[in-house]
């Protein structure tokens, strides 16, 4: 079927097969390689993108489910909050292999947009659906809280 979808602010009109997953549309058709395929079973969150502003797992959506909606990937984040997260991730060494990082940033970005001063508990709750096998979360949580301070400063 033909779908119309806005990805990172750009309107696309694409013919898709019903069984095409959103993650493949983003990576293979639109070249947005920040979106990762990790577990491919809706557990790890490496494929997290924003659908109409809310985090979802793009490996567990058919592309046609994004019809008439807007999708934002890491490539589409370019405001102060995104910059604050980028900076705090570097400063706190919150990435090691980097595979989970785009999904982590998308989830943290949504948290910072919906809550001005998140607590550590808020951050942990937000990141339940994002797995990291290297850094063990402490530095990621620290980076998220630091980013929140940068944004509200």
């Amino acid at each position: 079927m033909r779908i119309q979808v806005v990805v990172n602010g750009v309107r696309h009109d694409i013919e898709v097969k019903p069984n095409l997953l959103l993650v493949h549309l983003l990576r293979d058709y639109l070249g947005l390689r920040s979106v990762r395929i990790g577990c491919d079973t809706s557990n790890c969150g490496a494929c997290t993108v924003l659908l109409d502003g809310r985090p979802v797992k793009s490996c567990t959506l058919f592309a046609f489910m994004a019809h008439g909606r807007s999708v934002t990937t890491l490539e589409g984040l370019n405001d102060d909050a995104a910059e604050a997260i980028r900076r705090s991730f570097v400063e706190e060494t919150a990435a090691q292999c980097g595979y989970c990082t785009s999904g982590m940033i998308i989830s943290i970005y949504h948290l910072l947009k919906s809550k001005r001063k998140p607590t550590e508990e808020d951050v942990r709750h937000t990141l339940v659906g994002n797995l990291c096998r290297c850094t063990g979360y402490v530095s990621i949580i620290r980076a998220a809280l630091k980013a929140a301070r940068y944004v509200s400063a």
Binding site: S42, T48, L51, R54, P55, V56, K57, T60, S107, H125
Partner: peptide, 9 residues
């Protein structure tokens, strides 16, 4: 239920 991403869909 599940996690944030799952609850959003």
């Amino acid at each position: 239920i599940g996690d944030v991403q799952v609850r959003n869909m």
